[in-house]
Amino acid sequence: MRVHVVEDDAGVSDSLSLILANLGHDVISYPDAESLFRSPPPDGSDTVIVDLTLPGIPGAQVVRWLLKMAAVPRVVVITGQSQSAIDHQLRGLAPAGVVRKPLTVEALARALPAS
């Protein structure tokens, strides 16, 4: 399966790619929302992992955009913020999963579709 990772932290992004590849996925990483929007859009069978705190366009905006697509990909939010901050930013949005940092491979695997 193809997994898109939108994460600005280089260490998190690199280790995520490694573990996702390890789980057997094709990984495409983006350092910010802008570079995701510039690339070919994900399709309905893809998963997009989005960090909420991004430089520039905020993660919640990316989630909103993805959930409005004709063929909605699976959207998984990752974040280190407090629950109230998460709730506030995701008002009215229902991503397939929210995984809080620090991430573990088990929590990630649970949020991804079984493949």
Partner: peptide
């Protein structure tokens, strides 16, 4: 959380 996430993964 960032370095801990990376470290763990």
């Amino acid at each position: 959380n960032q370095p801990l996430t990376a470290l763990m993964l």
